[in-house]
Amino acid sequence: MTGKTHIIGGITASLAFAQITNYEPVLLVGAGVLGAVIPDICHGGSKIGRSLPVLSKIINGLFGHRTFTHSLLFLALIAWLLSKFMPVEAISAGLLVGMISHIVLDMATKRGVKFFFPFKWTVRFPITATTGGASESLVFALLSLLTVYFGYGVLFAL
């Protein structure tokens, strides 16, 4: 998936999560957007990879793309670090929700992810989308509609 699809996925997931929690929606969604791009730190051409090129190159050299940073192990490590060093729960939750949305969206591509890293098993859905293709445009459109729906729910729950 492209960066814009990951970002809208992070927004959608964060707004949906905001409806079932008491976290501040603005913090949750802001962190969700950041979380939605973090797993692609392993790809130098990604939005975050271009922002942090040295870190991106190191991580890619160590692990490759869609392996460690797209895994359950990475999610657990980040969750643990956030529990120790992030005093604002809404930000921690948003980051994790955004990261999970990113990984789930990449599971919907032909390449899938190495979700159980360090095992080399590829996890992907039976129906996949082509990155940058018409099927991704459809995913983006559906996520946009869901963003409006969940955003409406959050707005009127305040």
Results as ranks from 00 to 15, higher is better:
Met1Tyr: 15
Thr2Tyr: 15
Ile7Ala: 15
Ile8Phe: 06
Ile20Glu: 11
Val26Thr: 13
Val29Asn: 14
Gly30Gln: 00
Gly32Phe: 12
Gly32His: 12
Gly32Thr: 13
Leu34Ser: 04
Ala36Arg: 07
Ala36His: 06
Asp40Gln: 13
Lys47Gly: 04
Ile48Arg: 00
Arg50Glu: 10
Ser51Met: 15
Leu52His: 01
Leu52Ala: 15
Pro53Ser: 06
Pro53Phe: 03
Lys57Ile: 04
Ile59Trp: 05
Phe63Gly: 09
Phe63Leu: 11
Gly64Val: 08
His70Asn: 13
Leu72Glu: 05
Leu73Gly: 01
Leu75Ser: 01
Ala76Tyr: 00
Ala76Glu: 03
Ala79Tyr: 14
Trp80His: 05
Lys84Pro: 00
Phe85Leu: 15
Phe85Arg: 07
Met86Gln: 13
Ala90Glu: 00
Ser92Phe: 00
Met99Lys: 10
Ser101Val: 07
His102Lys: 06
Ala108Gly: 12
Lys110Val: 02
Val113Ser: 02
Val113Gln: 01
Phe115Ala: 13
Pro118His: 10
Lys120Asp: 14
Val123Cys: 09
Pro126Thr: 02
Thr128Arg: 01
Thr128Val: 13
Gly132Tyr: 01
Ser135Ile: 02
Ser135Gln: 09
Phe140Leu: 14
Ala141Lys: 06
Gly151Asn: 05
Gly153Ile: 05
Phe156Ile: 07
